[in-house]
Design a protein around this nucleic acid. Structure first.
Lengths: 129, 129
DNA sequence: ATTAAAATTGTTATAATATAACATTATGTA
DNA sequence: TACATAATGTTATATTATAACAATTTTAAT
């Protein structure tokens, strides 16, 4: 368990308490009162937090959420469900899914060291409407 | 089988003959001699081509490749392998993978209508080096 | 053929996302 | 201590993408 630097901690705290994925410039806006003034300060912290697996980037949304999967020390196998109406994002933690994907081998003999899976659909709430 | 408009056809042809994913502004640069002058003209064609499944967006790379999966009329279930050294991208077409993912259900009862999966690793060539 | 709706195009401006380059300070560790 | 590594601060700029508006072309129903 790694200790975070000042900026990393500030930005992680913000993302961690957010119910929804946050975008880099939304983060910037929200941490300016804490002395983080420039985009690069945000992006550097985000890069590091992604690298150590404390947060994940939702690629299709250019947004970041905290990892809620205790086994996720490094961001090497991620899966998310994304509601196309309310944009709610949930990290999927399914043993069978992660086993299946970790063992997946394609024809080319390529060795995978990482994957990212994004499911899109309607969440329970939005499906009813 | 849908007929493409002029701009769509120009841009699809370029992507389709490219061995690697192309970025929007690379595309723009390469079609300026054909009269497409503005980013928006490129993005509009890309949006449409993605919508009808002729091309796919590689989200982690902000780049586009032609679909080489004949069954892919609509971009609703996509999987790619990406080499982290040479950036070669290949569309994966595996019946067992697509079946597994199409049938995957998470705990929340969310109904998925689409997914995108990106595997990262080293391709055969880069693994040897 | 007529015509109304839908799709596509053209254009300018600007928004949103992300990195380069350089100087400085803090932290970890031999 | 002192050296390497990581983190910070700052300005400028590169890259990716969309807003807003006007015009034209295509499609499909009458």
């Amino acid at each position: 368990m790694q200790t975070l630097s000042k900026n990393q901690q500030i930005i992680f705290d913000l993302i961690n308490k957010s119910p929804e994925p946050l975008k880099a410039y939304t983060i910037l806006y929200n941490v300016q009162k804490k002395g983080i003034k420039a985009p690069l300060q945000v992006y550097r912290a985000l890069d590091k937090l992604v690298e150590i697996g404390k947060i994940h980037k939702i690629e299709s949304r250019n947004a970041f959420i905290a990892c809620h999967n205790s086994s996720c020390q490094v961001a090497k196998a991620t899966a998310f469900s994304i509601c196309e109406i309310c944009e709610k994002v949930t990290e999927i933690s399914s043993d069978s899914l992660s086993k299946y994907l970790a063992n997946f081998k394609d024809k080319d003999g390529m060795k995978y060291i990482k994957y990212n899976l994004e499911f899109f659909g309607l969440c329970k709430k939005c499906k009813v409407k």
